[in-house]
Amino acid sequence: MPSKVSAFVSAGAAYDPGPGNPWFSWDYLRQNYGTLLAALREHLLLTLVAVAVAALLAIPLAVLAHRFGRLTGTILGVTGVLYTIPSLALFAFLAPFTGIQPVTVLIGLVLYALITIIRNTLTGLRQVPAEVVESARGMGYGRAALLWRIELPLALPGIMTGLRIATVSTVALVTVGELVGYGGLGDLIIGGFNANFYRAQVMAATLACVGLALVLDLALILVGRAVMPWTRRRTA
């Protein structure tokens, strides 16, 4: 699978559209919906696992960074450098060691999602009003109770924003995993390009990808409303 970037493309030579290569074709969808669904499933699975693992790591890290101010600089610095490194380069670093496997893609996706969730969770935690924390302390809340029952619930808007941005960008980023053969719908996008510029496939996979991102985003908005009933009143 790795030798995909082998389309012979000459610069400047415009591809003749022709009637035989439409952007959208029902025939393509009818004949290939199995392939499309399989790619969609792989895409969804990679996204969900990556975001879930990232959230499990990022939220405790953000809490640590919030509690110990000195760690904040380090964590933000390291994630900032990571964030500047292009995804293709990251996969290039990982692939020689982890091989041509889904794990390679997952590690990359988790690292990028991690950054997003940490930063947003930290922003959320910082936005908890000092008076609220103060009065909770005055009422006798211990450290754990303060975190669990006051700070984290009040930081939920930030956490949810982080999860939403991380999810949407992860869906888009999965396509880059095509390099190691596990790019979900990205395999179909690049595959369609390399298979004689098959427009119907490129377009169908792209639309499925954007659609998946929007559906997941909407789902997270609904989850956010369910777990933060107090924000509903403000927007209504």
Binding site: A13, V168, V171, A172, V202, A213, L214
Partner: peptide
């Protein structure tokens, strides 16, 4: 900004050369 996050770069890089713009820089 939100919508641009959902569009994979790879997709746009693949689609644009297949339009009238043609291959190349």
């Amino acid at each position: 900004t939100n919508l641009s996050r959902a569009v994979p770069t790879v997709a746009l890089l693949t689609i644009l050369p297949l339009t009238v713009i043609g291959f190349g820089p």
